[in-house]
Amino acid sequence: MTAGAAGGPEEAAPSGIGRRRAAAQGENRAAYRERRQEIISVAADLFKANGFRGTSIGQIAEALDTDRATLYYYIGSKEELFDEVVTDAVRANVEVARSIRSGDGTAPEKLRRLLMALMESYAVHYPFLYVYIQENLSHVGGTRAEWSREMRQLNKAYEEALVAIIQAGVDEGTIRPVADAWVIAYGVLGMFGWTNRWFNPNTSPVDATTIGSAYVNILLRGMVTDAS
């Protein structure tokens, strides 16, 4: 059974395996962590190629040349795996945004730091954040409703930090008031988010830092005033 629009878990792991998995996690075994990371990597590739909803636990198991029962020793469901990785990444991005917003520097300097960090995060957490963007997985229901709610709150917090930086630049005279701050912010996020269509840090001849720098330079040359 695959996850439908309600966003429920694909399958529940057998209770005995669940207890063994919890015990292994508690023991913090290096081999367990290494195998689980391998599973995450393989699942990520399938999520990117087939879409999150189009990928089943069975496909992940097949790609790893194992069976679903063995896979459940390491993960409870594809949702659990995906949500764990994405939550950590999104939380970290929000903390970076808030730190930059409240830190030193002019608005253009802050904007550069923030957007460079965002692009580099896409590479570090590839392809999880891209799958999250592509499939709008911040809006799911069922058993993932609480996770979805947190994701929407984190998205809003990130957007608010970006809008605040741009608005501060307009107020201090370093950023041109070409539109409302939120309009500029959404345009910026759209520009960087669109890289999900073509950027793969494992195969791209251009790295995330170079892409981020190029995009920031394009943006700032159109946004920054002589006062900066």
Rank of each mutant, 00 (worst) to 15 (best):
V90H: 03
S56R: 03
A107M: 07
S77V: 13
R35H: 14
L114W: 05
G54I: 09
R101Y: 10
S77P: 09
S56C: 07
G51N: 06
N50Q: 14
V86F: 00
A107C: 08
G105A: 07
F52L: 10
A43N: 04
E109S: 15
A69I: 12
A44Q: 05
Q37D: 13
A44D: 03
L118T: 12
D88R: 11
D45A: 12
F47Q: 05
R53H: 12
R91C: 07
R91W: 09
R53A: 12
F82Y: 13
N93Q: 15
T106I: 05
P108R: 08
P108D: 10
A31N: 11
A31I: 09
I57D: 01
V86D: 00
F82V: 05
E95W: 03
R53Y: 14
S102Y: 04
V42I: 14
N93V: 07
I60L: 03
P108G: 06
K110E: 06
G58N: 11
T87D: 05
T106W: 02
V96L: 04
F82T: 03
L81W: 04
I40E: 14
E34W: 08
R35C: 08
S41I: 06
D83N: 15
L64T: 04
R36L: 12
N50K: 14
P108V: 08
E84L: 02
I39C: 05
Y32F: 15
L81F: 06
R53G: 10
G58R: 11
E80K: 06
N50F: 08
Y73S: 11
A69E: 12
L81C: 07
D67E: 11
R36V: 07
M119P: 00
A61W: 01
S41L: 09
V42C: 07
